[in-house]
């Protein structure tokens, strides 16, 4: 399972525009293990959509190598590349279903391209519609389906060619929060049960938290930080990572006026149900100020971050720190001078 399935080596992409050269990707190096759920997160315009399109060569890099299953895709002929693309499926923000074909017709499409006989293709498509829980809508057209249902059809279509990888380009960005959760749960199930590698492009931290094991943070066409999701979540190093973990409202948390110590606590599930903070307040008889909290239930486990402000009294603040260390709570000190901005 730890074999590398996708490897981007020194991938650079430049676009020629009227106003000169634009560098969309700068020397990207990325190894994605088979079976992983790899997130690539960045703000819009960071280059993440271009990056994911280099993996199946919808965008051809200006420099660098794109290795899939040990083979450099850039050295292949178009017809050979088309064969490889059967193994790298893709789902999109706007679903991109064929509007003139019904659900089952859409799922059959990649099989048809691969020359699978019609009967066989339809039987397989029906199976896959069952997997995504849409068998009773097999003969509905995309215009008759909701956004979530359309994305389910797209996922069934992505599965049709028995891919090794599914690239998800902002796959839930057009969906409401409830549908987003359902679609992410489905993708996670596909990742876990079928061992299909996911590459998830998103601008939403929640998506990464829910399904990804590893994450890379991209900013202005460069990967600035990458690694295990929990690790980066607990100890973001770069300003870009912090910006993503700290929504806009938290800028003031690192303002310059106050000298109080602020801590960012991370709950990764094992302690979130324990009333640690309440006990700290009661035992030390000193209040803490809650500045921000963002807790989520993922797979029945509470995960999230919280920013608290320690006591004015340096002595009590030190005791509070000691208490948190004793309780094994992961935290980081926030810079008072506001480096986040």
């Amino acid at each position: 399972m730890s074999d590398t399935i996708i490897s981007l080596q020194g991938v650079t992409k430049e676009f020629e525009t009227k106003s000169g050269k634009v560098v969309a990707l700068k020397d990207i190096n990325l190894d994605i293990k088979a079976g992983d759920a790899y997130g690539i997160i960045g703000l819009s315009g960071a280059g993440k959509s271009t990056l994911v399109r280099t993996i199946n060569l919808l965008e051809t890099p200006t420099e660098g190598k794109v290795i899939f299953d040990g083979e450099n895709l850039m050295s292949l002929k178009q017809s050979e590349l088309n064969q490889k693309r059967h193994k790298i499926s893709m789902i999109f923000q706007q679903f991109n279903l064929l509007m003139q074909r019904d659900a089952i017709g859409n799922v059959c499409f990649p099989l048809e391209l691969a020359g699978v006989p019609k009967k066989e293709a339809e039987a397989k498509a029906m199976e896959l519609l069952k997997v995504v829980d849409l068998e009773e809508r097999a003969h509905s057209y995309p215009s008759q389906l909701s956004g979530g249902q359309k994305q389910r059809v797209a996922i069934a279509r992505a599965l049709a060619s028995d891919p090794e990888v599914i690239l998800c380009d902002e796959a839930t960005s057009a969906l409401d929060p409830k549908t987003t959760r359902a679609i992410l749960a489905l993708l996670k199930k596909i990742n876990e049960e079928r061992g299909i590698t996911l590459v998830v492009i998103t601008h939403e931290m929640d998506v990464i938290k829910q399904i990804c094991k590893d994450v890379a943070i991209i900013e202005s066409g460069e990967i600035v930080e990458k690694g295990d999701v929990q690790e980066i979540f607990a100890h973001p190093k770069t300003p870009a990572a912090k910006k993503l973990f700290f929504p806009d409202g938290q800028k003031e948390l690192t303002g310059k006026t106050s000298t109080k110590s602020r801590l960012r606590l991370v709950f990764d599930g094992k302690d979130a149900h324990k009333p640690i903070i309440s006990r700290m307040i009661m035992e030390l008889k000193a209040p803490v100020n809650f500045l921000y909290a963002d807790m989520d239930v993922v797979d029945g486990v509470q995960k999230g971050t919280m920013v608290i402000c320690l006591s004015d009294d340096p002595e009590i603040a030190e005791k509070q720190r000691a208490f948190l260390i004793k309780e094994d709570v992961v935290f980081t000190e926030l810079e008072v001078e506001g480096e986040v901005e």
């Binding site: 919808l58 017809s79 693309r85 893709m90 991109n96 509007m99 391209l113």
Partner: peptide, 14 residues
């Protein structure tokens, strides 16, 4: 829709 054409390309359509 250009997106549908892109989807077909991603599936390896000639």
């Amino acid at each position: 829709d250009a997106g549908v054409i892109e989807a077909a390309q991603s599936m390896g359509a000639s």
